[in-house]
């Protein structure tokens, strides 16, 4: 088997036309003034790529550019090398296979964000030392106090009642793993609300206290928040969001600007709600508390129904109507009806 090739000796930029011939296990080079012979196992081929002609590199630094694909393939076959990149090359060149690669890539990125990151975040969250978590929570509270929250307008008597209620919830749930602390605030912007920060800080708004018809309802909400702390949901959320940010940054190429996660933390906590799975976990803790108190899950179901109604009213949303399935899927908070249904069934 033989072919024509351009020969570059690697010492000067001049080229000459040569004929390459495979003779047994040797590659013979017939040039205008050169006649060389190299064992096939000593020559190296460039990777097959697109429709670029293949280069044969000789041990003395010379190179031949070969137009003939089959010739290069023949050498590789005899050498028994290059299988992997031949496979890659045919993969890249087939529209169908490239499309498969595209679908696989999208599926993998989606799967990683959906399953891989939450799993990683959970492990990482449990590995965070309690001191760091407390510091982070304290810092976040400071920023929230400057932005969304105002001091509570409740009188001292009511405040101490609520603190006692919170202590009872923590005691009932045997939650001694964290330094739990209740912070009472008012927030016209956030309305009736309660949320948990990393390290065990639980924030309760005056608006929620006003909305509750019974203290056990407030206790159920607090138990729900204690559930978020118990399962490190805030920490997991923070880690998840920063990993997603890092992933996006690496894909778009801007790595250094994604390092500061502390600045984005407060808004992230308020804006992004806990994932559906996390909400269910926390709901179960609320039910666990109510059972131990001898109450039913109805207490919790009725306050979240009222919360939903209050928020739908302020946001101008359709509260009791049917939700479209798409909207339901994309909201991270499980639809309230679904949650209430689940609570009542679990009774």
């Amino acid at each position: 088997m033989e072919t024509h090739a351009s020969y570059f000796d690697g010492r000067s930029s001049g080229s000459r036309q040569v004929v390459l011939r495979i003779e047994g296990s040797e590659l013979r080079l017939h040039g205008t003034d050169a006649k060389e012979c190299w064992p096939l196992k000593d020559v190296r081929l460039s990777m097959p790529l697109g429709s670029i002609r293949r280069a044969i590199y000789f041990p003395d630094g010379a190179r031949c550019d070969v137009e003939d694909r089959h010739f290069a393939l023949r050498i590789e076959r005899i050498q028994g090398r290059g299988k992997f990149f031949r496979g890659i090359h045919s993969w890249e060149n087939s529209l169908k296979l490239a499309f498969t690669a595209l679908v696989l890539t999208i599926a993998l990125v989606w799967g990683f964000i959906q399953f891989g990151i939450p799993e990683l975040a959970e492990r990482a969250a449990y590995a965070v030392p309690p001191v760091t978590e407390t510091d982070l929570g304290q810092e976040t509270l400071g920023i929230l106090d400057k932005t969304f929250l105002k001091p509570s307008g409740l009188d001292a008597g009511r405040r101490s009642e609520l603190k006692k209620l919170f202590d009872r919830v923590v005691l009932r749930l045997d939650a001694a793993d964290r330094l739990y602390r209740l912070e009472l605030r008012s927030s016209p912007r956030l309305g009736a609300n309660a949320f948990a920060l990393p390290g065990g800080i639980v924030i309760l708004t005056d608006e929620l206290v006003a909305l509750a018809e019974h203290d056990e309802e407030i206790a159920a909400v607090l138990a729900h928040e204690v559930g978020h702390v118990r399962y490190r949901h805030s920490m997991r959320q923070v880690i998840q969001n920063s990993v997603v940010g890092l992933l996006v940054a690496t894909l778009t190429g801007d790595v250094l600007s994604a390092t500061s996660m502390a600045a984005a933390l407060p808004t992230m906590l308020v804006d992004s709600k806990f994932s559906r799975e996390m909400e269910r976990e926390a709901d179960d803790v609320a039910v666990e508390y109510l059972r131990r108190e001898g109450e039913t899950a109805d207490r919790f179901a009725s306050i979240i129904a009222r919360l939903e109604k209050a928020h739908a009213g302020t946001a101008g949303q359709d509260s009791g109507g049917e939700r479209s399935r798409i909207a339901d899927y994309f909201s991270t908070h499980p639809a309230t009806e679904e949650r209430i249904e689940r609570l009542r069934q679990g009774r």
């Binding site: 697109g50 993969w91 060149n93 529209l95 490239a98 993998l108 990125v109």
Partner: peptide
């Protein structure tokens, strides 16, 4: 002489293998 169609294949296979 590069062609978008050809490079698309190389690019997407590169991306996939980097992730995997």
């Amino acid at each position: 002489t590069g062609k978008a169609r050809e490079y698309f294949g190389i690019w997407i296979v590169n991306t996939l293998l980097k992730i995997v």
